[in-house]
Structure formats: C-alpha cells, structure tokens
C-alpha cells in the first residue's frame, strides 16, 4: 500500500512505528529476559530486593565471582540428566517426522492423482482432529496400552503422535500435490514410465518445498507436545517438555527453579534457530490453508 501517491501523514507513521516497537517488545522481551536470567542465581532471577539485580546479577557475582554462571545448566543437564530427555525428544521428533512424511507423501500423491474426490473427507478429518484435544484420544489409548504392556516406551508414543498428526499432514501434502500439474506425470507416463517411476523421477524432484513445510509442522507438533508425551511415557523415557513439567514438581520444594529455567532456555534455542532458518516455510504453511479457504 505504501505507494508514492498514497502519502501518509507523519503522525500516522509515527503511531505505526511506535506500535511495532511495543509489539516487538511484547513478543521478544520475555525470551530475552529469561535467556539473560538463566545465567543467574535464583535470588537474582526472582529479585525481591531490587529488580536491577536481575540485570547486573549482583547476587550471582557474590556467589560465583562473575555475574554469569552456568550453575542452572549444569544442574539441569548433568544432575537432573536433562540430556536424556533431549535425546528422547530427538528420537521422537526424527521418527515422527520421517514416518508422517513417508505416509503423507505417498498417500497425498495417490489421493491427489486418483479420480475420486477425497478432499472433502480428508479436510473434515483433519479439521476434526485439529479441534479435538489430543488428550481425549490419549485416555482412549491408555488402557489398552497398559493391557498390552506397551505403555511408557518411545515407539508407542511415536505411533500415537504420527496417528494424531497424519490427517493434517495428508491434507497439506494433498493440496500441495494438486498444485503440481498433472501433465508432468502424464507426459512421463507417455514416455513409458510406470506410475511409480513417474513419481520417483518427475514428482520427487519438485516436491521438496511442500514436504519441508509439512515436515516442519510435524516436527513442531512432536516437539511441542505435552499431553501425549507426559501421559504415555514413563519417567526415564520422558521427552523435554514433560521433563520440564516434572522439574517444576520438585523445584518448588527444593528451590532449584533455575534448573527449570535453564531447561526451558535449552528447549527454546532449537526452536529459535528453526524459525530463523525456516521462516519462509512456516509462513507459507500457516497461510496455505487460509488462502485456499
């Protein structure tokens, strides 16, 4: 809209810039604050005496000699074995993304090329799943899992997460494949490819943007999940988010809240980089559904 003809009054643009600055502070300040505070001792992070303590870290300096300490991280990662949860999260995310993408790509491609209109039903299932709290499903899974004795281990959780994620993945990839012109694989078929060869040599090279976007969202789902993982995983198999929640249970008693703060920062950092590198894909994925209506 910012064309030369449509000049803005100065007051208006000042207002705009002011608002943007306020919004940026609201959006980013909590993260910066927590990141900064994670290198302090608890008395600085929660400062009763003087709030500037949490910026300059006077108590931290008194305790450790420098205003920055890794004590929180040490406690969380080494004493509380947070690294275990990090590895578990890695495993869960990796397998959830891989399996949802494999099923999603093949299924989405097949659905988009078959004559029958699945779109509606896919959309409906994806919608219903989006709306249903995952925890309602978890309560259905739990009793059978107890009976079959598969509760608490990573593979079951991965399967459940994939299942919850699948309608959404299928729908996204399906609409993406429909945007790839049919003529592409039809011409491959004319040249003598089988359907699978057409997929392998013609579609695969052009499908990466859609697959990456979908993969990002599957990753976020697996990474951010709390309801499923906290209910379905036993203590030693916990992923990061339920592990942090578990920290809180003990921290309020032992005054080790800085462990939780450090763990929270550790869990946020990967997301930070994810947004940094894949910003365009995330925006594309978020808007894709909307623009198509």
């Amino acid at each position: 809209m910012a064309s030369g003809v449509n000049r803005k009054p100065v007051g208006f643009s000042l207002l705009t810039y002011g608002f943007i600055v306020v919004w940026l502070i609201v959006a980013a300040f909590p993260f910066i604050w927590t990141f900064w505070g994670s290198f302090k001792v608890e008395l600085d992070f929660f400062s009763i005496a003087d709030w500037t303590n949490s910026i300059f870290g006077r108590r931290t300096e008194m305790t450790y000699g420098t205003p920055f300490t890794m004590a929180g991280y040490e406690g969380a990662w080494i004493k509380k074995e947070f690294w275990r949860s990090v590895i578990n999260t890695g495993i869960v995310c990796f397998f959830v993304v891989c399996s949802s993408l494999t099923i999603g790509t093949l299924g989405g491609y097949a659905l988009s090329r078959s004559g029958y209109r699945y779109t509606f039903w896919l959309l409906i299932i994806a919608l219903i799943f989006r709306a249903m709290p995952p925890i309602t499903l978890v309560s259905g899974y739990m009793l059978p899992f107890f009976e079959w004795n598969v509760w608490g281990i990573l593979p079951t959780t991965i399967i459940v997460l994939v299942a919850i994620n699948q309608p959404f993945t299928l729908w996204m990839l399906h609409s993406f494949f429909q945007n790839i012109p049919k003529e592409l694989d039809e011409s491959a078929r004319v040249d003598g490819c089988t359907q699978f060869q057409a997929f392998r040599h013609v579609i695969v090279p052009v499908m990466w943007p859609g697959v990456i976007t979908t993969g990002l969202f599957s990753f976020l789902l697996a990474y951010n999940d709390f309801a499923v993982t906290s209910m379905l995983l036993s203590e030693e198999n916990r992923t990061m988010v339920p592990a942090i929640a578990a920290f809180l249970g003990s921290t309020y008693n032992e005054g080790q809240i800085m462990f939780a703060v450090a763990a929270v920062v550790s869990a946020t950092v990967p997301l930070f980089f994810l947004v940094m590198f894949f910003q365009r894909q995330i925006v594309a994925g978020l808007t894709q559904g909307a623009v198509k209506g």
Binding site: A27, A28, P30, F31, L220, Y223, N224, F226, V241, I244, A245, V264, A267, T268, L271, F272, L274, V275, Q279, I282, V283
Partner: peptide, 10 residues
C-alpha cells in the same frame, strides 16, 4: 513468530 512457535508449556 516466536511466541507462536514456542512450546505452549514453555
């Protein structure tokens, strides 16, 4: 984007 992508619990 940060507040949206960060884990809700976190």
């Amino acid at each position: 984007l940060l507040p949206f992508t960060v884990t809700p619990l976190i």
